[in-house]
């Protein structure tokens, strides 16, 4: 009872409810397709939000981890015939280790140097994926075999929908647990003031590295899922623009708000689909949305609306 009354639990239950009833409103597989992509992006954003929102560290290179996870699955499954689940885990482990190695030097950087460092890291990954054409198919990409676990295949969009929906719930649950753990409290201290946190005995560097690794692994797993789901991969999954998209999702939805990340992912994934008729204006609207939210709603959609709602209730 006590657990249920916590706002996070309420949030996770409402998210589960939305996921459960949404299929009733989706007319055909095209709509499922869009919603599945929302889910995949949301998984990345929930992880990235831990980094940006809770530790205040920006990453302009997270698409690189997404791309690595995706290509790990693509290459191991489609070329070397590994079972998809094993490839997914192998990719996540590889990305986790890579992120761990990179975390120390990267997390030492501050402000714009951190932006440059993560940006450079993402771009180098994307260039490698572009250039190693024999493995990755180069700029024009590679096909990826279907996902399967012990011979079972999520054949249609509905099965994929449940799979991604379930994983999103797990991701949100993990993130909430991390935030409400002692580690999480330390993280928030880091965001507040690093000096104060370290004086209070928080091993700042260790926590920052931990979050960096966790967020990279979330991205990698989402990347693997995406690879199998879309059946085709291009290096643009790992490019600078995709990294920016991910950061924008987090910031638009609301930094330091797990559900904000989900909302941000939903808004920015749906936006281009809604704008297809005005496709000419897509970039214009996208850029303007980024600027306007950051200028007028610096805390993002969810926290801003939340406090507006609270004020209204009073």
């Amino acid at each position: 009872m006590n657990a249920l009354s916590k706002p996070e639990t309420g949030g996770i239950l409402s998210l589960a409810l939305v996921i459960a009833i949404l299929p009733a409103f989706l007319p055909n597989s095209f709509y499922f397709d869009v919603v599945i992509l929302v889910g995949i992006n949301a998984i990345v954003c929930v992880g990235l939000n831990l980094l940006i929102g809770y530790t205040g560290q920006i990453s302009l290179g997270h698409a690189g981890f997404f791309g690595l996870g995706a290509y790990f699955s693509g290459i191991l499954v489609s070329i070397h015939g590994w079972p998809p689940l094993v490839a997914l885990i192998a990719g996540a482990v590889f990305v986790g280790v890579l992120a761990y190695i990179l975390a120390r030097p990267v997390m030492k950087l501050r402000g714009h140097y951190l932006a440059m460092g993560t940006l450079g890291m993402g771009i180098v990954i994307s260039i490698v994926l572009n250039q190693e054409g024999d493995l990755t198919g180069g700029p024009d990409g590679m096909p990826v075999d279907a996902f399967s676990v012990f011979g079972w295949e999520p054949g249609n969009e509905l099965t994929w929908y449940w799979m991604v929906g379930g994983l999103l719930l797990i991701a949100v649950w993990l993130a909430l647990n991390l935030i409400n753990s002692p580690v999480g409290r330390a993280l928030r201290a880091v965001h507040g003031s690093e000096v104060a946190a370290s004086v209070a005995g928080v091993d700042v560097a260790r926590y920052k590295s931990l979050v960096f690794v966790v967020s990279a692994v979330f991205a990698s797993v989402a990347g693997s899922l995406f690879a199998h789901y879309s059946g085709f991969l291009t290096p643009s999954e790992a490019d600078f623009f995709h990294s920016i998209e991910l950061v924008t999702m987090v910031v638009l939805g609301g930094m330091a708000s797990v559900f904000g990340a989900v909302v941000g992912a939903a808004v920015l994934t749906l936006l281009p689909q809604l704008l297809t008729v005005f496709h000419d204006y897509e970039m214009l609207v996208f850029g303007a949305a980024m600027m306007i939210t950051m200028i007028f709603m610096r805390r993002g959609l969810v926290p801003t609306l939340q406090s507006a709602f609270n004020r209204w209730r009073k």
């Binding site: 700029p139 024009d140 990409g141 096909p143 059946g231 085709f232 291009t234």
Partner: peptide, 8 residues
Amino acid sequence: GATMAVIP
């Protein structure tokens, strides 16, 4: 490139 991508 676009053709090969949609063949599957």
